[in-house]
Design a protein around this nucleic acid. Structure first.
Lengths: 197, 197
DNA sequence: CAGGGAACTGACCGGTCAGTCAAGTTATAC
DNA sequence: GTATAACTTGACTGACCGGTCAGTTCCCTG
C-alpha cells in the first residue's frame, strides 16, 4: 500500500543524507545507527523501519553520495561547450580543498568497502563506468571536432585521466597545500594540452 | 633489563606480521585483538603486553607493511642500472595481481586511516616522502646520464608517476582483469618513454 | 638452589551498539 | 465515526570485544 509515497521517499532521502554526514564524520566502521537517527531527528527504530540493517543504510548512502557528485559535475559541464575546457573544468571541480574534501573522504571509504564486499564492488564499478563514459564522450567530441588528435586511444586516455585525478586527489587529501593543488592543476592541464591535434 | 632482547624483538615482529595478516583479512575496523593473538599463537594478554592498545598494534603493522614493501622494491631495483629500466620494473612490481593484491589492500586501509587521524597521517607522509625521494633519484640519474630530457621538472614527473601508479593500481584492485593490467603497463611505459631526451 | 623479576595466560569486567518489539500515534478508507 | 494499516518510538536484549589483573611459568643471577 503506497499511501504516503512522497513523504516516505523524503524520509528515506533524509536518512540517507544524514548517513552521508555520519560517514564523513566518523567513517563507515565507526558510524552508529543512533548517530544517523539523531541527525535525522528520528529514532533508531525508524531508521531500521526503512533500512533493515546498518549496512543497507551505509551502502545506499555511499551510492547516494556518488550519484549526487556525478550529477553535480555533469550539470557544471553543461555550461561549457569546448571539450578541452570541459576537461579542465572537471579537474577544477575535483581538486580537494575545504569544500570537496568531504567528497574525497567518501571515495576513500567507498574504495575500502568495495574492496572487501562483492556487492558494493559492483555498485562501485557501475559508478565508475558512468564516469568513464562521460570522459570518453568528451574526448570523442574533441576528436570529432578535430581539436584532439585522431590517433589517440580514447579508452587509454580516459583511464589515464581518471587515474591521474584519483591519484593526485588522494595525495592532496593526505598532504594538503596550495603547492600540491597547483601541481595537480598543472599536471592535468598539461595532459589535456597534449591531446591537441 | 635487556635480557631477552632478541626474542623480544622476534615476538614483536611476529605479532606485527600477524596483525598485518588480520588487516588484510578483516580490515582495520573489524580486526580483533583475539585474531592477532590466535595467529601469533599467543594470548590477548601478550599482545597487550607488547602493545598498549589495539590502535598501537594496527598502526605499527601498517608502517611495518609499508616499510617491508619499500625495502623489497628497493632491493629489486638494485639489480638494474638503466633508469628507464628501473622505472619500468617499479611499474611491474606494483601491477595488482593475485600476490600484490594484499599490498594494495593495506594501502587502502592506510589511506583511509591516515585521512582520519593526524598521527597516522604523519607516518603516511613520511613513507610517501621516501617513495618520492626514490623516484626523484631515478629521474635525476636519467637526466645526469643524458637519457632523460633536461628540461623536465623532476618533482612534477615524480608526482605524476606516483599518482598514475596509485590511480591505476586502485582501479585494477577494484575491477581486475588482464586487459586492465595490460593497460596500466602500457600507459606507464608510454610515460616513461616520454621522458627520453 | 633459592629468590626475583620478566614474560605470559585467559577469565572476567564494563562499555558499546545493532536490531527487536510492544505499545503508541497518525493517516486513510469507507 | 470507526476500523485498519502505516508509521514511529525508545527501552531493552544479547552479542561482542578491548583492556585488566591475579595468578602461573620461565629464566636468570648470585
Amino acid at each position: 500500500m503506497a499511501r504516503r509515497l512522497v513523504e516516505e521517499e523524503e524520509r528515506r532521502a533524509l536518512i540517507l543524507s544524514s548517513a552521508w554526514k555520519v560517514l564523513i564524520e566518523r567513517g563507515y566502521a565507526a558510524a552508529r545507527v543512533a548517530d544517523i537517527a539523531r541527525l535525522s531527528g528520528t529514532s533508531t527504530g525508524t531508521v531500521h523501519y526503512y533500512f533493515p540493517t546498518k549496512e543497507d543504510v551505509l551502502d545506499q548512502a555511499l551510492r547516494y553520495a556518488a550519484d549526487r557528485a556525478f550529477d553535480r559535475h555533469h550539470r557544471m559541464l553543461s555550461e561549457l561547450t569546448d571539450p578541452a575546457e570541459r576537461l579542465r573544468r572537471l579537474v577544477e571541480l575535483q581538486i580537494p580543498d575545504r569544500t570537496v574534501r568531504d567528497e574525497w573522504t567518501i571515495w576513500l571509504e567507498f574504495w575500502n568497502e568495495a574492496n572487501r564486499r562483492e556487492p558494493l564492488r559492483a555498485s562501485h564499478a557501475a559508478i565508475y563506468h558512468r564516469w568513464r563514459a562521460l570522459i570518453v564522450q568528451l574526448v570523442q567530441e574533441g576528436q570529432d571536432q578535430r581539436l584532439f588528435a585522431a590517433e589517440l586511444d580514447v579508452d587509454d586516455i580516459t583511464e589515464e585521466f581518471i587515474a591521474l585525478v584519483d591519484g593526485l586527489g588522494l595525495h592532496i587529501l593526505l598532504e594538503p597545500g596550495e603547492a600540491a593543488r597547483e601541481r595537480m592543476r598543472r599536471i592535468l592541464f598539461r595532459m589535456i594540452d597534449g591531446l591537441r591535434a
